[in-house]
């Protein structure tokens, strides 16, 4: 699949989710922070999530994360790899939610061949989320496959999973 197409689908889907949901509550907490082990950040990531919209049992969050592999590069200089997973997450449920999400992941991995370091890939997420309306502990777990761009006109599915723990406020 063409990556530009996928990017457009993500944006359109995000906007669609926003459009179909109608605000019915202003007291639902709006901010989440969590650490994800595994998941769309690679080995792990720290994340901020903002409630975009809510309708009854349906909620939409926008997520941004940050992850790295090496803080020092192959020359042993401080020059961290940077991985930024973005996602739109739709949750269906009250405290116990079915979660579906997708989005792009931007990565800048420090390499010997400098022109091979920056990539745009696509992440997906199907899983379970525990989150109370009043906030507090947040727990997620799910299957988080990634569609990796091979830069040769093809893409490869990478099967992956993640578990998150965090706080909603």
């Amino acid at each position: 699949m063409n990556f530009k197409t996928l990017f457009v689908i993500t944006i359109v889907l995000g906007l669609s989710l926003n459009a179909i949901s109608q605000k019915d509550s202003t007291d639902f907490i709006k901010n989440n922070i969590y650490a994800e082990f595994g998941g769309i950040g690679g080995y792990g990531s720290i994340n901020y999530e903002r409630l975009i919209d809510k309708k009854s049992y349906f909620k939409v969050f926008g997520r941004i994360g940050l992850s790295t592999y090496n803080l020092k590069d192959y020359q042993n200089n401080f020059n961290p790899d940077i991985i930024v997973p973005l996602a739109m997450n739709a949750c269906l449920g009250n405290e116990h939610n079915l979660e579906l999400g997708l989005g792009p992941t931007f990565s800048r991995i420090v390499k010997v061949q400098e022109n091979q370091g920056e990539w745009l890939d696509f992440n997906f997420n199907v899983g379970y989320r525990y989150q109370k309306e009043s906030g507090g502990v947040l727990i997620r777990c799910g299957y988080t496959p990634v569609l990796e761009n091979n830069n040769t006109g093809s893409a490869t599915w990478r099967h992956w999973a993640g578990v998150s723990i965090g706080y909603a406020f």
Binding site: G42, Y43, Y69, D81, I83, T105, S107, I109, K111, Q113, Q116, W119, D121, V146, E148, N150, N151, T152, R158, W160
Partner: peptide
């Protein structure tokens, strides 16, 4: 154009 599978996103050649 072969890249290593791991870690995710890294694509070392």
């Amino acid at each position: 154009n072969t890249t290593y599978s791991g870690p995710l996103y890294s694509k070392y050649k």
